[in-house]
């Protein structure tokens, strides 16, 4: 238990030895070994990385097109508005939608897993 209660509020003096492994049976040890925790971390980390990757691809794709294919972005869509304009606004909307997607998934799936984990630990 000493590991969890230490944290930032009540930290030992800097340089004091820290435990090299988690105490068997300690809260942290039980958390790390919990299958619910492992699933939560796996799912959330994976999803976060996929969304990060998507954002990078879309944004740097947009920048890449500006740098390498200006003609494509100048193509007219409708009367005056160009494809580039729709893509630029699209990047902004895409960023917002991605954050929304993450929040919806976190509010339902990850919060449920977290609650389950805390229940199983008797918190």
């Amino acid at each position: 238990m000493s590991v969890t209660t230490r944290g930032l509020d009540g930290r030992p003096a800097p340089g004091a030895p820290r435990p090299s492994t988690l105490e068997p049976g300690s809260l942290n040890d039980r958390v790390v070994k919990s299958p619910v925790f492992q699933q939560l971390v796996r799912e959330r980390t994976g999803f976060g990385l996929i969304l990060t990757g998507l954002m990078l691809v879309v944004y740097f794709g947009f920048i890449g097109l500006i740098a390498f294919d200006k003609e494509l972005l100048a193509v007219k869509v409708g009367g005056t508005a160009s494809l580039g304009l729709f893509m630029g606004v699209g990047v902004i909307l895409f960023a917002f939608l991605l954050t929304g997607l993450y929040v919806v998934r976190a509010n339902t799936r990850y919060d449920a897993l977290s609650a389950e984990l805390k229940r199983s630990l008797g918190q």
Partner: peptide
Amino acid sequence: ADRERAAFEAQFVRSETGIGASGAHA
């Protein structure tokens, strides 16, 4: 460095779950 790498586990638990995080009204 060994101690710091070993301490990652405890940090990892707190960063992923909030267990032990400083409360709202400290």
